[in-house]
Design a protein around this nucleic acid. Structure first.
Length: 264
DNA sequence: TTGATTGTTACCGG
DNA sequence: TCCGGTAACAATCA
């Protein structure tokens, strides 16, 4: 489910619902009982997203750190409380709302030093106003790994997931197998700008939409992706090649995203 | 029951 | 140190 836009959207929503309030923190399945008891009846100061990581920050300076991984889900609802659906690890509740967290790969309580350690290993987040893209570029230009891999590496730049990776590189006509060190500053700036643009749209729409015609239309119908999962390129009608980067599926139009000769 | 899925980390070996 | 490969883990749905 989640790429960065999902988590940032949840952070904004949950911040409105929970910040400045005393929360009840429970563990319906009992799989997070210890952590829940540490946070129960604490005041929530704010809820923040860093890339795909979500932090509920409490007055005690402890934080609930959640990462949804591939399958995790957040469900926010209005009171009254309803029976948990599926495997709910944690339930956070205020006087008006509650959130159920299902299937996170990370769900833990961090103290201040734990939060600092986490933030230190996450790269600049394309959805944060305080992000410094220069840091991402410096890492990319020193790497010989393919750009398709680098932009999804959360320690290099945070927020991009598997679908956005393919779509951003296609939109910018950049072959995913070009090594990072062959990416110019100008090219990197286009990747960064399009990432910011697309993830912000994703936040607004609560969906990944990367096709310009769909971005500008209010209708929900039609293809949401340009080449992700598709067989032909909407621009040149050529075949879309299916490849694997990092054991995740990726797509490329070799005609619209040429690989420079010196790299082949 | 099987397979696929918008993710990450740990560990090993070259 | 860097990089590839592999396994492990998470929950749900078709």
């Amino acid at each position: 489910m989640p790429e960065g836009h999902t988590i940032h959207r949840a952070a904004r929503d949950h911040r409105r619902a929970f910040s400045g309030q005393k929360l009840s923190v429970t563990s319906p399945q009992g799989r997070f009982s210890e952590g829940a008891s540490l946070l129960d009846s604490e005041f929530c100061e704010t809820v923040e997203a860093f890339g795909k990581h979500l932090l509920y920050r409490f007055k005690s300076s402890r934080a609930l750190h959640v990462h949804l991984g591939l399958f995790g889900r957040l469900r926010k609802q209005s009171l009254p409380l309803k029976p948990p659906k599926g495997a709910v690890r944690v339930r956070l509740a205020s006087k008006k709302h509650f959130v159920d967290i299902n299937g996170p790969t990370i769900c833990e309580v961090l103290d201040q030093s734990g939060v600092n350690a986490l933030l230190n290993r996450i790269g600049p987040d394309v959805l944060r106003a305080d992000a410094n893209p220069e840091i991402s570029f410096q890492k990319i230009r020193r790497s010989s790994l393919p750009i398709g891999r680098l932009i999804m590496d959360q320690s290099i730049m945070a927020g991009i997931g598997n679908i956005y990776r393919t779509e951003i590189l296609w939109r910018q006509a950049i072959h995913p197998e070009i090594p990072g060190k062959a990416i110019t500053r100008q090219t990197f700036d286009r990747i960064w700008a399009d990432s910011v643009y697309l993830l912000a749209i994703g936040m607004k729409r609560n969906a990944i939409v990367t096709v310009d015609a769909q971005i500008h239309s209010k209708k929900r119908s039609g293809e949401k992706y340009n080449i992700f999962g598709r067989v032909s390129c909407p621009k040149c009608d050529g075949a879309v090649r299916h490849l694997e980067i990092n054991k995740r599926r990726a797509f490329v139009c070799d005609r619209c995203q040429p690989l420079p000769n010196r790299i082949k």
